[in-house]
Structures are given as C-alpha cells and as structure tokens.
Design a protein around this nucleic acid. Structure first.
Length: 253
DNA sequence: AATGGAATCAACCGCCCCTCT
DNA sequence: GAGAGGGGCGGTTGATTCCAT
C-alpha cells in the first residue's frame, strides 16, 4: 500500500539549493509561471522533485516575501490567530502578507512558544499554566482583539481577501516605489538619516492598494475592553511596521 | 582557541484534501 | 461513487550558526 512518491526520486538532488538552481527556478517561473509543479523541474532543467521546487519557491524565492524576523505586531497577530485557528499555519500565514507558513511555524516554535511560557501561558491552549503553589484560577487572558475567527475574518474581509499565494506576480518594470516624506519622518526615529531610509516592501505597497491605510483607520472593531479603535490601531501599527521592511527582491533583480 | 550545547531555519517526509475522470 | 494524481499542509529533521564555558 502507500502512495507512490510524488516523482521519480532516482537521480534527484536533495538538500540545500544552490544559487544556480535558484536562478533557474526563478527564471523559469517568472517567464512561464507554474502550470504543473511536477513538470517544472524538467522544464526548468533542475534535478529536483517538483515538490521541492514548489517549497523552495513558496518559502524562499517568491518575490512578494518579506525577510527578517517577525515584528512585534506580526507576532501578536500570529498569537491571536493561533489561539483561534490552532496549528493551521497556512491559514495563519494567509493573514500576514509576505510571510510563509513555514516561517511562521518556525518562528512559533523557536520564539513565541518560549515567550508565552515565560509569561506563564500555555502555547498550546493559550491558557495560564497552573503552578504548584497556586491552584489554577480561571483567569481570563485574551490578547485577541477579535472575539472569534469570524470577527477577525469579518474585519479582514472589509477589504478583498488577501492571500500571499494569490498575489499576482509583478515584473520589475511594474515596480513603483512611493516615498511618503511626511509619514517617514514621523514614524522613523530622530536619528534616522535620509540614506538610512528603507525601501518599502513592494508587495506591501501593492497590498496597500487593497487594504488602504485610510480604510483601516476608519474601521471600528468591537474589542474586549470596549474600545473599538484598538483593534484597527493594532492592525495599522502592524501594517506600518510592515512597510518599513526592506524587500530583498531588489537584491535578486 | 577549542569544544559542546542551544538555537535557528531551510528543507524533507508523509499524510490529507481536492479535483478530475 | 471510486480511484488516481497533484498540490498543500503540518510535523520533523539536520545542517549551520551562535554562544557560553
């Protein structure tokens, strides 16, 4: 019994990808897209399994990816979503533009889990960890601005649903980098010199067209503490921080 | 400087789900 | 409805880097 392997593994390369392989895959997908992952390695001239190509592309090579550690607001969002969705990393990732399920999963396992335990919160249940001294009291800990996943979705669906997988590929000549002097001067620290200003993430700029900061600012979300602005503020903060992240895409182009 | 343990993260594995016939 | 195949997902592994001793 058992499934057949996804492809003929004889003679196929495994392990870390080389720059040459990356280049081949990027070139192929940018030029042809991927109709069928199984066919991609053959057509791209790679000795890799199609699955491996898909993984490499979605987790590392996709131009709309953000690199670097998750920001504090992204972390908060991940915790919120994990409390509601559990280990459904791809679902969680779909709420964080430019982040992959693998990245979030890794970050959860290496950083967030520890952080929550330190705070006395069970990362599995999001409940307080009972200590030996004090018998467990049902303490209400809800860091989520959303009462339910439906509420979160309702909020997210105020704008067209966003999924990084659905982000259309943009070509280098389609890239327009906008620079908002006012917002950059107010958001950056006083020590920030002009040459240190980071290029905004392109996909963020693109998704901005969908989300729109103004749209977000206008949103009101019911929260636990009754302050309807908090949730959208957290989201705006998250989106603003996202904006500051450098897109590695430029290095690639 | 050497060594060993911890932390990190890219990549793989195997199962599940969805679609097509 | 059943079976096959492809894609996606979540868990796990292992190589590499970091850090303390």
């Amino acid at each position: 019994m058992g499934r057949q392997p996804c492809c003929d593994k004889v003679g196929l390369k495994k392990g870390p990808w080389t720059a040459e392989e990356d280049k081949k895959l990027i070139n192929f997908i940018l030029n042809n897209g991927h109709c069928c992952w199984r066919a991609v390695p053959k057509l791209a001239g790679l000795l890799r399994c199609g699955k491996s190509c898909r993984l490499r592309w979605t987790n590392y090579l996709r131009p709309d990816l953000k690199r670097g550690l998750l920001s504090e607001s992204e972390e908060k969002l991940v915790i919120d979503l994990h409390a509601q969705l559990g280990n459904r990393w791809s679902k969680i990732a779909s709420h964080l533009p430019g982040r992959t399920d693998n990245e979030i999963k890794n970050h959860w396992n290496t950083h967030i889990k520890k952080k929550l335990r330190k705070m006395g919160i069970d990362p599995l249940t999001h409940e307080p960890i009972p200590t030996m001294e004090e018998p467990q009291q049902p303490i209400e800990i809800n860091t989520s601005p959303f009462e339910s996943i439906e509420a979160a979705d309702q909020f997210l669906n105020k704008s067209p649903a966003f999924c990084t997988d659905e982000v259309p590929m943009i070509l280098p000549d389609e890239i327009i980098v906008a620079y908002d002097e006012a917002s950059s001067s107010s958001s950056s620290s006083t020590s920030s010199k002009p040459e240190e200003i980071k290029v905004p993430c392109i996909e963020w700029m693109e998704s901005m067209y969908f989300w729109g900061l103004d749209d977000l600012i206008g949103l009101e979300l019911p929260t636990e503490d009754g302050d309807p602005k908090l949730a959208s503020d957290a989201y705006i903060q998250y989106q603003r921080e996202t904006m500051d992240q450098e897109s590695w895409k430029f290095e690639l182009m």
